[in-house]
């Protein structure tokens, strides 16, 4: 059995917070310049740095057994992964946003640009609200500015990016939390080691 656990981290907004949180618990991780694979000095973890949306795929194929990512990513790409531990950082909000002078229409379909097509479709479909969706992969706040779509659904932390583009949150749709997740079979096979990691990550600062 391999001595270390394999943990995938995403390159996005969470990385610095994950590394700081782990370091506070005695797990020091340093990715050397441009390298996407690292080990912690104690040999507990092998870490792989991947694109946010690809993280569930690496877990699904067993390349990494564990990962840390937000519920936004899990909903879009990794619903079948097991959520082992909710982490106390990186929380954000999935929100419907639009131009500051715009209200949500009382009837008729909304046209929404978003990266989160599955979430947005399911959210409004379950509430009987017709929507037209336009898939974008980045800089979603440009869509209302350039009149591609009057509304967007996106993650909002402070709202400063929205304000900079003359947009505002119209409705908060879901609080997004960050989780330690696992490939189910990997969790089952390595449950003792993973239990120890969970205890360590759940602890107060070292």
């Amino acid at each position: 059995m391999s001595r270390h656990l394999t943990l995938a981290l995403s390159k996005g907004r969470l990385l610095d917070q994950v590394l700081a949180y782990a370091s506070e618990r005695g797990i020091d991780i340093t990715f050397e310049d441009r390298k996407l694979i690292a080990h912690d000095p104690d040999g507990l973890l092998k870490l792989i740095l991947v694109k946010n949306a690809d993280l569930p795929t690496y877990l699904r194929y067993g390349i990494a057994g564990l990962g840390i990512c937000g519920e936004d990513v899990l909903y879009e790409y990794g619903d079948e992964l097991v959520r082992l531990l909710e982490l106390p950082f990186g929380g954000t909000t999935m929100a419907l946003a639009g131009r500051s002078d715009l209200q949500r229409p009382k009837w008729g379909p909304m046209t929404i640009a978003t990266k989160f097509v599955r979430f947005t479709h399911d959210y409004f479909h379950e509430r009987g609200v017709p929507v037209r969706l336009i898939k974008l992969d980045g800089s979603v706040e440009l869509a209302p500015v350039l009149e591609l779509a009057p509304y967007i659904v996106d993650l909002v932390e402070t709202g400063s990016t929205l304000r900079a583009h003359g947009l505002r949150v119209i409705e908060e749709l879901k609080k997004i939390k960050v989780h330690l997740v696992a490939n189910r079979a990997y969790w089952k096979w390595h449950y003792r080691q993973i239990e120890r990691l969970i205890v360590r990550l759940s602890s107060a600062d070292a």
Partner: peptide, 10 residues
């Protein structure tokens, strides 16, 4: 369920 090392499903 039966699991084996290195495989991602039972």
């Amino acid at each position: 369920k039966i699991y084996v090392p290195g495989y991602h499903e039972a």
